[in-house]
């Protein structure tokens, strides 16, 4: 058998999952959003759910741009409002698999109220949150996940605030599946996404990701590779970790980053109330029993 080096080719085997005519994307070298998006595309394939039934909704920010690259029905909405926008789709089309793919600032700061209420309601929605510890798109400002003491464009003397632990928050407000992985743990991340897609209800996956431009540089992390190296050397997988012990501080070398699929429970997901009277069939909605939530569109007046 002849053995060759790398072959140069014009297209990637996953190109049909992306709007390949828009590649390369706008994200910086060393950014962790690319691997997370890559895992999402692979997870959509592996989920067995036809691509026509996947919908991706995002808000604003670097991660928010993901909706513009994945080749499924995709909505790039207002800052913080991806979850309620996705709620609307999920409620009226319960047959669709709706994923909100956005960043920590978008989902947890400006969109934090929607996040906690969507989880409380247990909306049938998968949320993937790329956490890069800062506002990347606007140039590295501090956000709700910036570690205490870390430097940021709006925290030049070090961040004075304690950050959220996202898995702890998500579990507390009612998410039925809660996981944390990193942009390096691509296999586990992809598998977690597939598991989330196969669940009913509100799921949450945090993806720790390097932002060498916004977060790495002011915090002496060098490039994306160096942050990925920190993930490699310091991450500990513990699916049964106590949720209140999942705090993160990239800068402290004595503290491990705990990863895992921490929560996987079942509870009834949100369905708009229906009462059994009135001529529902008149409007073609007798097929809602398949899932029980929302109105089917066929035969709408």
């Amino acid at each position: 058998m002849s053995v060759e080096g790398a072959k140069i080719v014009p297209s990637h085997h996953l190109d049909s999952l992306f709007r390949a005519d828009r590649l390369p994307h706008i994200l910086c070298p060393g950014c962790g959003i690319g691997p997370a998006m890559h895992c999402f595309a692979q997870a959509m394939l592996d989920s067995g759910i036809p691509l026509e039934r996947h919908v991706c909704v995002s808000g604003i920010g670097c991660t928010g741009r993901v909706a513009g690259y994945v080749n499924v029905d995709s909505y790039h909405t207002t800052h913080g409002r991806a979850i309620p926008f996705a709620l609307g789709i999920s409620v009226v089309r319960p047959d669709l698999k709706v994923t909100v793919f956005s960043g920590d600032g978008d989902l947890i700061s400006i969109g934090g109220n929607h996040f906690i209420h969507a989880a409380r309601r247990n909306i049938n929605l998968n949320v993937i949150c790329v956490n890069n510890f800062n506002y990347g798109m606007t140039g590295g400002q501090a956000g709700p996940t910036t570690p205490l003491g870390a430097k940021a464009a709006t925290a030049p003397y070090g961040n004075a605030e304690r950050p959220f632990s996202l898995p702890y928050l998500a579990a507390a407000v009612g998410a039925t599946f809660v996981a944390r992985w990193t942009a390096l743990h691509v296999r586990q991340l992809k598998e977690a996404m597939v598991r989330a897609m196969k669940k009913k209800g509100f799921t949450f996956i945090e993806v720790l990701a390097p932002c060498p431009t916004g977060f790495g540089r002011p915090n002496n992390i060098g490039d994306g590779l160096e942050e990925m190296e920190r993930y490699r050397s310091r991450c500990v997988v513990n699916h049964r970790a106590a949720l209140h012990e999942l705090d993160l501080d990239l800068r402290r070398i004595d503290q491990p980053f705990i990863l895992g699929n921490f929560v996987d429970i079942d509870r009834p997901h949100f369905r708009p109330p229906v009462i059994e009277q009135g001529p529902a069939a008149e409007f073609g909605r007798d097929d809602r029993s398949a899932d029980g939530g929302g109105a089917a569109m066929e035969g709408a007046p």
Binding site: P84, G88, I89, N113, H117, P272, A280, R288, M297, A300
Partner: peptide, 25 residues
């Protein structure tokens, strides 16, 4: 058989309306 959702605020209310409308409702 139509869907009524009471939202957490008006920001989310209109966002949800747009999502539902984008899905054809």
């Amino acid at each position: 058989g139509a869907s009524f959702v009471q939202m957490e605020d008006e920001l989310g209310s209109l966002a949800a309306v747009l999502g539902a409308s984008a899905a054809g409702a």
